[in-house]
Design a protein around this nucleic acid. Sequence first.
DNA 1: TGAAAAAGTGACGTTTCGTCACAATATGAC
DNA 2: GTCATATTGTGACGAAACGTCACTTTTTCA
Lengths: 236, 236
Amino acid sequence: MNTKTRRQREFEQRELLFLETASEIIRSDGVSACTMDKIAELTEYAKGTVYKHFTSKEDILCGLCVERLSKGVEMFAHALQIEGGTRQKMVAIGLSYQLFTNKYPEEFDLLIAARTNNIREKASPSRIQQMEQIDGACQQIIHSIIEQAITQGDLTLPKGMQVVDLGFGLWAASFGLLALSQADGLVGGFMPTDVEHQLVSHMDCLLDGYGWQPLSSQHPSEDNYQVVLNHLSKFA
Amino acid sequence: MNTKTRRQREFEQRELLFLETASEIIRSDGVSACTMDKIAELTEYAKGTVYKHFTSKEDILCGLCVERLSKGVEMFAHALQIEGGTRQKMVAIGLSYQLFTNKYPEEFDLLIAARTNNIREKASPSRIQQMEQIDGACQQIIHSIIEQAITQGDLTLPKGMQVVDLGFGLWAASFGLLALSQADGLVGGFMPTDVEHQLVSHMDCLLDGYGWQPLSSQHPSEDNYQVVLNHLSKFA
DNA sequence: TGAAAAAGTGACGTTTCGTCACAATATGAC
DNA sequence: GTCATATTGTGACGAAACGTCACTTTTTCA
């Protein structure tokens, strides 16, 4: 019984080892260099052992997403604790999403790929479920702020929209912004002037559009950005 | 000289044949089933011939994106011709983007994947350049409406934002919305209530946030959606 | 201590990739 | 019409990766 938990622990430990090794390979040589054989070799386990943990290469990739996303959720939770109104909290979450992508650029790349059927169909069902659970946790956090904002009177749902819709919109817009900013190959001339501040600027507009108080015209727009950044740096 | 153009034509013709064949395979059996050998077999050419056109499998995938995106650009151009103000035109473009993803769901999947370093690094430089050119053309269209809106007094750029920033925001938000809506694996409970109208609703809010006249509060919100849809159906 | 269960192994068959030396065909000068 | 040259097409081949599985080693616990 005690042994069982120890075994369990060792197993999880090793799973993490495989994941971190995969991450290192990806960081240094790209996704295509991240082969099962190489992971096995670097960790000094046999390939068969790796397959005891992951059903396929894509399963590892998704596993890595899950691992990183769980760190992301932690960041979001920290962001929630910033002092200020509900709107400020919402922006803080957006920004922590951005910090997340800066911290794990390669993994964010995977995260984008993981939206793709090509990847999803090759990962194990249980891994997919894990991903969905984490996605759910993120949405949960966002929903909680939205509901809080409604309760406190900062926000009235736009006509025809539910809490989930608003959450989805915010999430999707941020995802799109970050995904497209990151693609390094974009035509220079069409990239925004100041990538760093894009997310906050656009979020501010979107939140204004939703009618989330206080509107940006009513509060000093000047560095909200820095304030949030400072708050987040205390953790991470 | 005349022969040369004929050869050229035949070459392009065959390139298209390979692309369409790839598309069919993907539609029926998924991306992973789309192998070079299979394309060669179905088109009754040798693999070497396929490689005369495309440097790698990823190159074909990107080629397919380019092909489809060029159709997309046509749709955007049609959308521009809708009767109404600049804001209506902008919404029409967003909607035609949505129609595009509905028309070519598999290819949109590829388009998402093509944002990924993993794919980009394996495609040929010239193909990447083609993709950037098309991206540029899309942005160009968006920029033209934004500029028109400014000229006509429908829009004043929010503080600190340039035309490219606004275009980027609109583009990215739409991309995010569509990419996340399409991922069929998302947790049911967190999916928006009415996927079909999501894009327009959120775009409306975002445009309000940018201060793009006439604000949604000032015009009958009721089916703008249908109007645009009708307009677009005349073409496509 | 030893039998049963669990974990670990790596050679193997298969698939796909991308290459390349060679074959077939088309071109245009004479 | 013919022949040298250039272009285009071919498919066998080697390399790389995947995923499997029969077998070995280690651990567990009665």
